[in-house]
Design a protein around this nucleic acid. Structure first.
Lengths: 223, 223
DNA sequence: CCACACTGTAACCGCTTTGTCACCGGCGGA
DNA sequence: TCCGCCGGTGACAAAGCGGTTACAGTGTGG
């Protein structure tokens, strides 16, 4: 599930991205209006979080541009007390509206509510290289092979690796992202999960080509 | 369009009623929880505005009662800064949430947004593939077979699956949408309901062809 | 009052998923 | 060399989940 986050405040942008990534969403970031519109088109996001005040194009203009092409849920962010903004945003077809400051939990709850409302449980598959993940169906497809069914944990692991395709992800981070919060001593779980996943997706599980061991963690190889 | 306004603060209630009346809605008023539930049933309102703090039954309880019977849009009102409330309200199936104090314009804009959204959703098709649902008669017809009578819950379940025909709908979402509240631990209910529905609509209930188990939920197969 | 339909609850089965343990082999440092 | 660490592997037990049967409570209509 891809969420586009457009905000020129780097701190806030990263905070939102981190919160959503923890919740299993794939965060796509943009720092200004024009790049938000571009990235939306490129990535075909499933939900958009838009700051009202952005350089280039305002959140309103971005919202308008997006609405011209798509009915994807849009959540607008603005500073407190600008009532005009709220009315304008909802008039432009935004689906929800949040005033800063807000807590990550609040944001997450509303985003989940929007997703639920939009009926977007399943969505376009995530893909990188020959690996494409279908979150709705809980399957991966490697190249043109038959899709393989994955369990919840396998799916989550692969999703995290896919989100950082080509780069190594540390064991600690994977533990946190897949299980939520584990002591770093719990490598055994990860070891097993990787093993099981390799059995499913590697042509030769003994010589991993896709899911490789990397410095202090693992990485997904996409050529 | 009828809007039910439930708030024990007479001033606020009248203010909201006046605002909505100006905008062309028919306002129905209730001053406490039990009368809100009663009036909702009597008047079959198209949208509900609920204060969280009310005598008799809290806004949450009223929301739960309404969700048990209807998917009408619900907007909750509460005092500022009660983050728990927000999470809880959205979890119970409320559609929007506003913190006091708010301006009448804000309320109106959000209510109109909710109405718009509800209007879009109500156009959801009642048929897909060989499955067609008659909400008035409480029946389904599979292909050209005889229509089958469904119970209230079976109808709701099928309606939800039909709204996302071909895609998987998670158990949690089905629980919220069919029963209205329910914690995700209550899978037993869903299990039973699916079983009973399959007995009615599947040619061979032991090998489901229409209502299939999918990743973390169920889906309706339409070829 | 009884019969019936509807809904909720419990218990059981079989399969899958997940957590845990034990062991192996390579590698680097004491 | 010996030892400990680390990743990989196989095996097994615990937990979870879906399907099913059975039964209890409730409300309705005859």
């Amino acid at each position: 599930m891809k969420v586009l986050i457009a905000d020129d405040d780097a701190d806030l942008r990263e905070l939102i991205a981190f919160t959503l990534a923890q919740a299993g969403y794939l965060a796509i970031k943009a720092a200004d209006g024009p790049s938000a519109v571009r990235r939306f088109a490129e990535e075909s996001a499933d939900l958009v979080v838009l700051d009202v005040n952005m350089p280039g194009l305002s959140g309103f203009q971005v919202c308008e541009a997006i609405r011209a092409r798509s009915r994807v849920p849009v959540m607008m962010l603005t500073v407190r007390g600008e009532e005009e903004d709220l009315v304008r945003a909802l008039g432009l077809g935004a689906d929800d509206y949040l005033t800063k400051p807000f807590s990550p939990r609040t944001l997450l709850a509303r985003i989940q509510a929007l997703m639920r409302r939009a009926g977007m449980e399943s969505s376009a598959p995530l893909a990188a290289g020959r690996v494409s993940l279908d979150l709705g169906e809980h399957t991966v497809r490697i190249g043109s092979a038959e899709p393989v069914r994955l369990t919840k944990l396998e799916l989550r692991l692969l999703q995290m690796l896919l989100a950082h395709a080509g780069r190594a992800v540390s064991s600690d981070r994977l533990l946190v992202q897949v299980w939520g919060h584990r002591s770093s001593g719990d490598r055994q779980l990860l070891k097993q999960l990787v093993h099981r996943l390799r059995q499913k997706i590697e042509p030769d599980p003994a010589a991993p080509a896709l899911l490789r061991t990397a410095a202090a963690g693992y990485k997904l190889v996409v050529e």
